[in-house]
C-alpha cells in the first residue's frame, strides 16, 4: 500500500440497483399516486387540498418523527394512541379552571411523565418495549375514560384558534408539523446524538461500551415521543373542538407504526431516515384523501392501505436479501 492510500485508493463498489430502486420507490409512489388522483379528480391537485391533507396528518406526523427515532434505537412505543387520549382529556378538563397556558404546560407534563414511565421500564429496567407499552396503552385508555366518561367540549377561543388559525395562509397545525420534521431531520443528521441513536439500534452493548449513555438516550426518546403525543393531542382537540375519551387517538399507534415501517425503518432499528418516514405518512394521508375525493367507500380505502403496507414489506425483503 502506498503512503497516500486514501478514499480513492480502494475500488468503489458498483452501483447497487436494488438499493437505488427501493430508495426511489417511496417518492415515486407518491408522484404516481398523485398523478392517478389528479387524472380522476382534478381538484386533488390544488394548494387547498394539499393543505387539507396536511391538516389531516399533522398530529400523527408530530408523533411519527420522535417515534421513528425511537424505533431507530431499537425501541417501540405502542402506547401513543391512548396517551393522546389521556393528554387530550387532561387538557379538555383543565381549561376552565387553569386557563390556557397552564393547561398546555400540564398536558405536555402528562405526556412527558408517560414517556418517563415507559422509558424507565424499558431502558433502565430492561423490560420488553412491546409488553410495557401495550400495558400502558390499555392503562392510559382506562385512565382517560375514568377521568371523562363523556366527551369533553367547549374550549376557550384562544386555544381553539390553534386548530383553524393560519399564518401566511398556512394553518398553524401545518407549521407545527413542518417544525417537528425539520427538528427531527436536524437531530438525526447533524447532532452527535443522531449517530448515537442509530448506534444503539445496531448494537446496544457496543454503544454502551464506547460510552454512549444508552439508558439516558432511551428514556429521552420515550419522553420526546410523549411530548410529541401531548402536542398532537392539543392539535387534535383544538381541530375537532372536543375530546372524546372513548375514540380520541384510537389506533393512532398502528398508523404511526405503519408509516414508520413504510418509511423504511426496520422493526429491529439501526437505520432509517426521518424524512422518509414523513414521506410515508404523507403517502398514507394522500391515499386516504384521494380515495375520499373519488368517493371510494372506507372499507376499500382500508384494503388499499393494507396492500400498500404489504408492498412495502416486499420491497424491504428485496432490499435485505440482495447480494
Amino acid at each position: 500500500m502506498t503512503d497516500n492510500a486514501s478514499t480513492n485508493a480502494a475500488p468503489r463498489k458498483p452501483v447497487d440497483w436494488v438499493e437505488q430502486a427501493t430508495a426511489a420507490a417511496l417518492p415515486l409512489a407518491i408522484c404516481l399516486l398523485a398523478l392517478f388522483f389528479y387524472v380522476n379528480v382534478p381538484v386533488f391537485f390544488s394548494f387547498k387540498n394539499a393543505i387539507n391533507i396536511s391538516i389531516q396528518v399533522a398530529a400523527l406526523m408530530t408523533i411519527c418523527i420522535p417515534a421513528s427515532m425511537l424505533l431507530m434505537a431499537g425501541k417501540v412505543d405502542l402506547s401513543v394512541g391512548s396517551m393522546l387520549a389521556l393528554c387530550g382529556i387532561v387538557a379538555g378538563l383543565s381549561f376552565e379552571s387553569l386557563g390556557v397556558p397552564t393547561t398546555v404546560a400540564l398536558t405536555l407534563a402528562v405526556g412527558a411523565a408517560a414517556g418517563v414511565v415507559n422509558g424507565t421500564l424499558v431502558s433502565v429496567l430492561g423490560f420488553s418495549p412491546i409488553i410495557v407499552t401495550l400495558g400502558s396503552l390499555t392503562l392510559m385508555r382506562g385512565l382517560a375514560q375514568w377521568l371523562a366518561p363523556n366527551p369533553v367540549f367547549g374550549f376557550p377561543e384562544s386555544f381553539v384558534i390553534l386548530g383553524y388559525g393560519r399564518w401566511l395562509g398556512v394553518p398553524f397545525l401545518t407549521w407545527i408539523m413542518v417544525a417537528v420534521i425539520v427538528l427531527g431531520v436536524f437531530v438525526m443528521r447533524y447532532l452527535p446524538v443522531g449517530r448515537k441513536i442509530v448506534a444503539i439500534g445496531i448494537n446496544e452493548r457496543a454503544a454502551f461500551l464506547v460510552g454512549v449513555r444508552v439508558r439516558l438516550i432511551g428514556v429521552a426518546l420515550y419522553v420526546a415521543t410523549g411530548l410529541a403525543t401531548a402536542t398532537a393531542a392539543l392539535m387534535t382537540i383544538a381541530r375537532i373542538n372536543s375530546a372524546p375519551s372513548g375514540t380520541l387517538g384510537v389506533g393512532a399507534e398502528l398508523t404511526v407504526l405503519t408509516a414508520i415501517l413504510l418509511g423504511g425503518v426496520p422493526f429491529t432499528g439501526g437505520k432509517g431516515s426521518v424524512l422518509r418516514v414523513a414521506l410515508a405518512l404523507w403517502l398514507l394521508g394522500m391515499l386516504q384523501n384521494g380515495l375520499i375525493l373519488m368517493n371510494v367507500p372506507t372499507e376499500f380505502s382500508l384494503m388499499i392501505t393494507g396492500c400498500v403496507l404489504l408492498f412495502a414489506a416486499g420491497l424491504d425483503v428485496l432490499r435485505r436479501e440482495r447480494g
Partner: peptide, 27 residues
C-alpha cells in the same frame, strides 16, 4: 458482539465515541 457496529462504515465505527467531544467538536 461487543465492539463493532455492523452495517456502519469504517469511519463511523472509528469515531462513534468521539462525536461531540474535543476531537470532533460542534454539531
Amino acid at each position: 458482539d461487543q465492539s463493532v457496529f455492523q452495517s456502519l462504515d469504517a469511519v463511523e465505527n472509528l469515531l462513534m465515541p468521539h462525536h461531540g467531544t474535543r476531537l470532533l467538536p460542534g454539531f
